[in-house]
Simulated assay, not measured.
Amino acid sequence: MNARAKQGRLPLAQVQDGDEGSNLSAEEKHLNETFIKDSIPPWLAGSGYIGLAAISIATVPMIFPQIKWYLVLSAYVVAPLLAFCNSYGTGLTDWNLASTYGKIGLFIFASWVGQNGGVIAGLAACGVMMSIVSTAADLMQDFKTGYLTLSSPRSMFVSQLIGTALGCVIAPLTFWLYWSAFDIGNPDGAFKAPYAVIFREMSILGVEGFSALPQHCLAICSFFFIASLVINLLRDVTPKNVSRFIPIPMAMAIPFYIGAYFAIDMFVGTVILFVWERVNRKECDDFAGAVASGLICGDGIWTVPSAILSILRIDPPICMYFKPSLSS
């Protein structure tokens, strides 16, 4: 029966039994043939990008009058180069640095426009460049997954178009839901929007230069930048039994960047993981990632019913809030 099944099966390539290199080549050949067979024509990709650029050149200046049409055109001319760099880096590190490339555009366009609307123009140009650069990296990752799973690139691209069209409707509605239910941007509220403040300050910095920074701010930033490099270098050159006691600068910076609540959540999760490892290490190794992902997803999904309850003016039975004590 096995022999008959082997005879009836269509071989992907002529390979010799026991030749591991030939088997690997045959598998890669099959992956390449499947992926290239339904490839997207270059003219379609180019014309689509030009069409989106034309739409943005016409509509973005209507929404943000501070950014002129030629600035949007310049962003679309430069963005493909940055998108390639970001996609390549994301493929190597699985880390999407679209916000970093967006900040480059923010500083350039904010300083280009100057005092007369440079802050808004820089933020708008940053949004345009981030959307292009980030989408390129995400699409590359999706195509990589499709390549490994023998999926059709055209089918994946059509699915991306459908998802993008849905996002054009769902994203504004979600923003309206949050904007109506919560006090977005209030420094004393639950949703402080720290990224909005950070990007606005960077845009102001791009317009006014280093003179906009508080006194000694640049020196302090330079000190901590050099300190982070030195600490990372020490972690790399010291023995493992010593380096594990050296803190990671990026982990230390996260609470300062997005708020202390994140550090508290991570600390509670670390304590749970520590106890779980002592109780049942094998079970912890098998399911810790899934449990952590579920907790993170649950925390994010709960914001939707929380917003609905807030819109309906339904207060929670228990509310914990921490703020500085009033001096007597």
Rank of each mutant, 00 (worst) to 15 (best):
P41W: 04
P42E: 09
P42T: 05
W43E: 03
W43F: 02
L44A: 03
Y49P: 03
G51Y: 10
L52T: 14
A53M: 15
A54E: 06
I57A: 15
A58Q: 12
I63C: 03
F64C: 11
P65T: 10
P65N: 07
W69I: 07
V72I: 15
Y76G: 07
V77Q: 04
V78Q: 11
A79P: 01
L82N: 05
A83T: 08
F84H: 08
F84S: 04
N86L: 01
D94S: 08
W95L: 10
N96T: 12
A98Q: 08
A98P: 11
T100R: 07
Y101D: 11
F107P: 00
F107C: 01
F109A: 05
V113E: 10
V113G: 08
V113D: 12
G114A: 10
G117W: 07
V119M: 08
I120K: 06
I120Y: 03
A121P: 00
A121Y: 02
L123P: 10
A124Y: 13
I132N: 04
S134K: 14
A137N: 03
L139P: 00
M140C: 11
Q141F: 02
Q141A: 04
K144T: 10
T145R: 09
Y147F: 15
Y147I: 05
T149K: 13
S152K: 01
R154H: 08
S155W: 02
M156E: 01
F157Y: 13
L161N: 00
